[in-house]
Amino acid sequence: MKKPLHGARVLLVEDEAMIAMNIEQLCREHGAADVVTIASFEALVPEVLDTGNISTAILDIKLSDQWTDDFARLLQERRIPFIFATGYAAGHQVFEPFAGVRVIEKPYRESDLIDALADVWSNSVSDRV
């Protein structure tokens, strides 16, 4: 049986090390070909999308004290499907410009995270076919 993230190249933007390690392992268990983890705002540069050949992303809306909404807009511009996994409530005003982007609130069930990511990734793959 094909795994839901089979072949995906996931960009994970998460500054909490234990959470990042858990999500990375989870993505690999569900078929991701690669997981590129960014843990600091300084490392969150557009070039990571090119060099990592990213197909989908999990984005925390805030790394330390820096908002990542500009990077989220870049993902949208490049048509890279993504979800937010964050401690902020889905109704927070920072998400208003991202109508239609799923927000998975921490703490979340692992299955909810994988289902949301697999859903946006598989929809983007079928759109390209």
Rank of each mutant, 00 (worst) to 15 (best):
D112V: 14
F98H: 06
M1Y: 09
I19V: 15
A17W: 04
I58W: 05
A39D: 11
T37S: 13
R79T: 06
D112I: 14
F41H: 09
A72R: 00
V125N: 04
Y108M: 11
G87P: 08
D112G: 03
R73A: 12
D34S: 13
E16G: 06
E16M: 09
D15S: 12
H6V: 06
R73I: 12
N22Y: 13
H92A: 15
N123C: 03
V101M: 07
Y88E: 10
Q93N: 11
F98M: 12
G31W: 00
E29T: 07
H30A: 08
H92T: 07
F41E: 02
L113G: 01
C27P: 04
L44E: 04
A8V: 09
G7V: 11
H92E: 14
V13M: 00
N53E: 14
E77A: 08
V101R: 13
R78L: 10
V48L: 06
L117T: 07
I114K: 05
P4R: 08
S122P: 02
E29P: 02
A90I: 09
L49C: 11
A118Y: 03
T68L: 02
E42N: 08
R128P: 04
G100D: 07
A85C: 13
S124D: 11
H6M: 08
K2D: 06
V94Y: 14
E110P: 03
K106Y: 04
E24M: 05
A57N: 02
Y88R: 07
N22T: 15
K3W: 07
V129D: 12
D60M: 09
P4G: 03
Y108F: 15
V120I: 05
L74F: 02
A8W: 05
A57C: 02
E105V: 15
C27K: 01
L113S: 02
E42T: 12
D69N: 11
D34K: 14
F71S: 01
G87F: 00
Y108I: 08
D119H: 11
C27N: 00
E16I: 10
S40Q: 07
A90V: 12
R79V: 01
V129R: 14
